[in-house]
Design a protein around this nucleic acid. Sequence first.
RNA 1: GGCGGCGUACCCAAGUGGACUAAGGGGGCGGAUUGCAAAUCCGUUAUCGCGGGUUCGAAUCCCGCCGCCGCCUCCA
Length: 511
Amino acid sequence: MGLVIFNTLTREKQPFVPVQPGKVGIYLCGPTVYKPSHVGHAVGPIIFDAVKRYLVHCGFEVRWVVNITDVDDKLIVEAEKQNTTTIELAERITKDYLDAMKILRVDTIDIMPKASEHIGDIIDFIKRLEVRDIAYESGGDVYFDVTKDADYGKLSNRRIEDQAGQRDLQSAEKRNPADFALWKAAKPEEPEDVKFDSPWGKGRPGWHIECSAMAMRYLGETFDIHGGGVDLVFPHHENEIAQSESATDKPFAKFWMHNGLTKVNTKKISKSDADPEMQAVLQQMTLHNLLDEYPGELIRFFILSTQYRSPIEYSQAEIASKRKGLDTFYRLFERVARLCGVSPYEKATELGEPGDDPGAGVASDVLAKSCVEQTALFKKAMDDDFNTAGAIAALFDFAGIINRVIEQEKIESGGNVAVRRAPDAAKADVLTATARLISVARLIGVFLDPPDLQAADRDGLIDKAMNVLIQVRQHVRKNKDFTTADLIRDLLKEQGITLEDRADGTGWRKD
RNA sequence: GGCGGCGUACCCAAGUGGACUAAGGGGGCGGAUUGCAAAUCCGUUAUCGCGGGUUCGAAUCCCGCCGCCGCCUCCA
C-alpha cells in the first residue's frame, strides 16, 4: 500500500507519484505579513511540516517552500495606520511569525522567499504572458485575460460566466470582469517603498503572481504539491494555475492539498473580518498570545489530532482535553525514565527512525509485536492522506500497551515472580518500546524534545524543599497519622502540586 | 443564485461498500490497585442528521429533506 493524497484538482484520493522519481517539491502559501498571525495560520505549516518529515522518512528528497507576502495593499493601509513603513511592518510581523513557527517546531521549511525580493521574477513572468497575448496592459495595470485560458476554473469548478459581474474591482479598463490583476499601477499617494519599476511604469505585483513566480523559481515549472487553506482555492489558487499553465503550457502543481479552516464559535477566524467580535477574538487568538499560554507542542498536538481537511473548532476546553491526552504520554516517558534511569527521548535518538523491523532489540513478545503493529498502524494512517489523527490513535494504543506491561510485570515494585523475567530485561524492553513510540511520533514532529516542565523554577531549590516535605509526610504515614499526611497533600493540591504515592516512592508534579 | 464541504456517543474525532457486533482522546460510571488519593490497568458508555432507494451486504453509493459551514471581495 502506498501513499495516497486527496487532490482538490480531481476531488479524489490519488496515489502519490512524484514528478521526478525520489524528489518532492512542495509549495505552501504563507502569510501576508500585515497583521499578527492566528491559530489558523499555524495549521498549514504544522501539517506540511509533518508531511515533509513523513515524506523524508519514506525516502524522498523534499524541498519545501513557504512564501512571505510582504507586498500587498493591506500592508500599505496597515503601515499608514500604524504610522510606520511597510518594510518595518513586514519585518516585525514576519519575525513574530517565524518565532511562532520555531516554538511549534515547524523547522523543516527549506526556503521562505519574499515577494519583495522577487519583483524581477514576477515581471519576467508577466512578460511571458504578455508576449503570448494572454496578459494585457490597461492604464498602467496589467491583467490576465481569463478568456484566453480554456480550462479556467478547473480547480474550483467554476465557470467564467458564473463569475461575470461578481468581481467588484471597479476597473472599467478590464476586458472581462473575471480578469485579475498581474500588476497594479502605483498611485501617487502611495509610499515609495512599494513602487517598483516595471515595463508598465511604477507599480507592484498583483496578489497571485508572486506565488507562481516564486514556486517556479524554486521548484520548477511543474512540481508536486501545492498547499494552502481551502479559502484560497478561489480565486488565489485558481488564478495561480491559470497564469502558470498559460505561461508554460505545462501542468503547474500535480497535487493540490487544502487544509480545513479553524473556527471559533462555529465561525471561521479571519484576519480581515471587520466584525468587532471577530477582532476581539483575533486579538486573543494570535499565535503570539496563544504560545504565551500554551506549550508549542500542545498546539501542534491539538492541530494534528484532526485530519487536515476537517475544520478545527478552537476552544480552551478542547485544548485542555488535548493537554490531558498529551500528559498521558509525558507521564509514561517520565515513568520509564524513572524506572530505567535513562531518558526514553535519548534512547529514541539512539534508536533512530523505525526501519524494517521496528521491534528489533525487544525481547518481550508482546512489546516487540506492539512495536511492529503500532508502527504499521501509524504508517497506514499517514499513507492515507496524512491522517495524523489516526496516526496519533496508534500512539495512544502503543502507550497503553507499554503501561500495561509495566503493570503486569510489576516493574515498579521490583518484578513479578510469576513472569519469571529478570527485572532488568523487562526494563530494557520497556525502555526500547517507549523509545520506539517516540521515534515513530517524531515522524510527524511530535516528542522531538522533552517538555521543559517547570523550566523556570527548576533551580533545584524547589526540588529540595519538596523532598523535605515528602519525607516528613512519609514519616507521619509510617506512624499511621493519615490526617497529617492528607493535610500536607491537600494543602499542596491547593497550590497546584499533586503528590503521587507509588510503589517505589512518592513523586510530585505541577498541575 | 452558483460551486464545494460537513452532520458518527455527553464533548472532540478516525473510518467513506464486507475483518464496523464503528478506532483513539476527553468526560461519566463500575472494578483492580491504594490507608485514602493520584497515577496506571480492566470493564462500560453510539447503529453512524432524517426519510426513501441500490446491493447478498451501507456509517460508507444514489435520491429527497432538515441543520451547519466555506468560497463566489481580501483571507491559511
